[in-house]
Simulated assay, not measured.
Amino acid sequence: MEVTKLEHACQIVTEGSARLVIDPGNFTRPVDVTGVVAVVVTHEHPDHVTPEQVRRILDANPGAVVIGPAGVARALAGASDAGGAGGADGVVVDVVTAGGRRTVGPFDLSFHGTRHNLIHSSVPIVDNTGVLVNGRLFHPGDSYTVPDVPVEVLAAPVGAPWLKVSEMMDYVLAVGPRLAYPVHEATLSDVGYGMHTGRLREAVEPSGSLVVLRPGESLTI
């Protein structure tokens, strides 16, 4: 299984000729790939999903399904266009929450968590459900959800309005992955990214290792 990190939160997971796209948002380059069997969206914020990104993927991959929590279904309900990405009623989302499982092509998906981390008391908390891919790779979205099963590889958020470095380090220590790589970095300067990644490394390396991927780079797991 290969994971390709794009900008910010988006990942493309490849198994054989099949691809899974996770969180294609507006901080990410246009996602132009074929072979996609599913798009998983952890939550509705635009840095994790936009109608334009979903339309582009579905137009190129008409058989792909979109999976996410209820808030994502509401956000994409009107996301239709002449290309038929969702028809007159918008993009159809297969709604999942914590404890859900789906099998799409070669991907076994289990879902963990229900809510986005708190940004501020004035900002509504939205649905957020992380995804564990083939029992190995966990993408938590914008949360500190710790799955109730071991996590081999963690896509670890390192920069966000809701993120505090000490809490990020505690989260990674709680998950205890064998391997981690930083994601959700678009809100950081180069200096901030280096600092946060350094703290992430400190949290990971007692029990595992850290790989820093530039957008477009891949990791075989």
Rank of each mutant, 00 (worst) to 15 (best):
R29D: 07
A60Y: 15
L58W: 14
A70P: 11
V21C: 09
I22Q: 06
H48Y: 03
H43P: 07
V49S: 09
G71P: 08
D32N: 12
V54I: 12
E52S: 14
P62M: 08
T14F: 00
I57Q: 07
L20P: 12
A70K: 15
D47L: 07
P46F: 05
P69G: 13
A60F: 10
L20N: 11
N61F: 06
G16W: 00
D59S: 15
P46N: 05
V40P: 08
N61M: 09
D32E: 11
V37C: 14
G63R: 15
V54R: 09
A60P: 15
G71Q: 03
G68C: 08
V54F: 02
N26A: 05
V54G: 13
T50Q: 00
G71D: 08
D32P: 10
V36G: 14
V39A: 10
P46K: 12
V41F: 05
N26S: 07
I22K: 04
G63A: 14
R19T: 03
I57Y: 01
V65G: 15
I22G: 07
G63V: 05
G25I: 13
N61C: 02
G63H: 15
V33T: 07
R55T: 14
N26G: 05
P51N: 01
V36L: 05
P30V: 00
I67T: 07
P51M: 00
P69T: 01
V33I: 06
V37R: 14
V33W: 08
P30K: 11
G63C: 12
I22M: 02
G25C: 06
P51H: 04
G25Y: 01
A64T: 05
T42R: 08
V41C: 09
T28Y: 02
T28Q: 02
N61Q: 12
N61Y: 08
S17G: 09
G35Y: 07
R56A: 11
D23P: 08
V66E: 04
V66C: 04
G71H: 06
V21G: 09
I57F: 04
T28R: 05
V65E: 15
G35F: 06
P46Q: 05
R19Q: 11
H45E: 07
E44L: 07
G25R: 01
T34R: 15
G35C: 03
V39N: 05
V72T: 04
L20W: 00
V49Q: 11
P69F: 06
